[in-house]
């Protein structure tokens, strides 16, 4: 265990954990915005897959990584429009329509990959960017301030989303629509418009999540996300619909995963316990969910399409 508690190993472990947590954080933040307005989007994983492919294909063809990330985000935006149309305008059962979006993303991204790319080729990934002055701080600098731009963006979005939800008129409308859409409607708030906007914003975040996942590995593969989108939905419950809580869940999931890998590589976890240890991030997250999330109440109108009375 002594090998683990060295500056070098701890620095890389925590830095990797933060990077690994980023796709979860982006997707879960987006889902939080949608759920606070009363819409649950189970299609996050499918949107991430489509966005990851769009990012990959754009990077492969143009070599422009910024354009690639924008393509991923734009794919999320388009899928947000589709999701909003089905869930809000057509008032479909949100769980079922979300699974439809997921299946579409899973299948269509695989189809595009096979037809347009064929044999996979790696792409360049976003390089780490050091923040002047801060990256020079011993130990902490290497852990937190030498990451890719998408990592910084994800963590900057936490206070931004928190501020918007809790300190702005738009955030008040989102919360009102999520808690009591009939009351919000009676006060002149367009429930449909608010929900359309939150789904589009949330799905754009999911698109960024797919882009960041793609940039982590530098290559696309069928079912690249490995259900990370569904874990992101669970992290919203873990974080009790609060951006800071969601960030805590994403960090826990990412860090535990990397710590387990590091312990395996150092021989701290014996080989015969290796497969069991691989389940640790999920087990710990579920346990934390059981103990923490019960204390908080979900948005009252979550998952319920809004029908105006009369």
């Amino acid at each position: 265990m002594n090998q683990f508690f060295t500056v070098d190993v701890l620095t890389v472990t925590i830095a990797s954990g933060i990077a690994l947590a980023t796709p979860f954080l982006l997707a879960a933040l987006g889902e939080t915005i949608g759920q606070r307005s009363g819409v649950i989007n189970l299609g996050v994983d499918g949107i991430m897959l489509l966005a990851a492919f769009a990012t990959y294909y754009t990077a492969l063809k143009t070599g422009n990584l910024l354009l690639a990330v924008l393509a991923g985000a734009a794919t999320g935006t388009v899928m947000g429009v589709v999701t909003a149309l089905v869930s809000v305008t057509l008032k479909a059962e949100q769980g079922i329509s979300g699974i439809g979006v997921y299946l579409f993303g899973l299948g269509f991204s695989a189809l595009l990959f096979q037809k347009l790319v064929g044999t996979p080729l790696p792409i360049a990934t976003l390089p780490p960017v050091g923040i002047p002055l801060l990256e020079g701080i011993p130990v902490i600098g290497g852990m937190f301030f030498r990451q890719s731009l998408l990592v910084y963006l994800a963590f900057l979005l936490v206070p931004v989303v928190s501020f918007v939800l809790n300190r702005t008129t738009y955030g008040l409308k989102i919360r009102a629509v999520g808690e009591n859409p009939a009351a919000a409607d009676s006060l002149g708030v367009s429930v449909a418009r608010i929900r359309w906007s939150t789904l589009i914003i949330g799905s754009t975040f999911s698109g960024l999540a797919g882009a960041s996942l793609l940039m982590y590995g530098g290559i696309f593969q069928v079912n690249l996300t490995q259900a990370e989108g569904f874990i992101a939905v669970a992290l919203v419950y873990f974080g009790a619909w609060r951006p800071v809580g969601v960030m805590g869940g994403a960090l826990l999931y990412g860090l535990v995963g990397v710590v387990i890998l590091t312990w395996k590589s150092l021989g701290i976890i014996p080989l015969n316990a290796s497969d069991l240890a691989a389940t640790a991030p999920a087990v710990i997250t579920v346990l934390a969910l059981l103990f923490l999330a019960r204390r908080f109440r979900q948005p009252a109108a979550l998952g319920r399409p809004y029908e105006r009375e009369g």
């Binding site: 890389v12 472990t13 590995g217 079912n223 490995q226 990370e228 995963g257 990397v258």
Partner: peptide, 16 residues
């Protein structure tokens, strides 16, 4: 099939 986890494992090894 988890590409991210394999990447993370490789990164961990490089760190070590």
């Amino acid at each position: 099939s988890d590409v991210s986890l394999m990447s993370a494992a490789a990164t961990t090894f490089v760190a070590n």
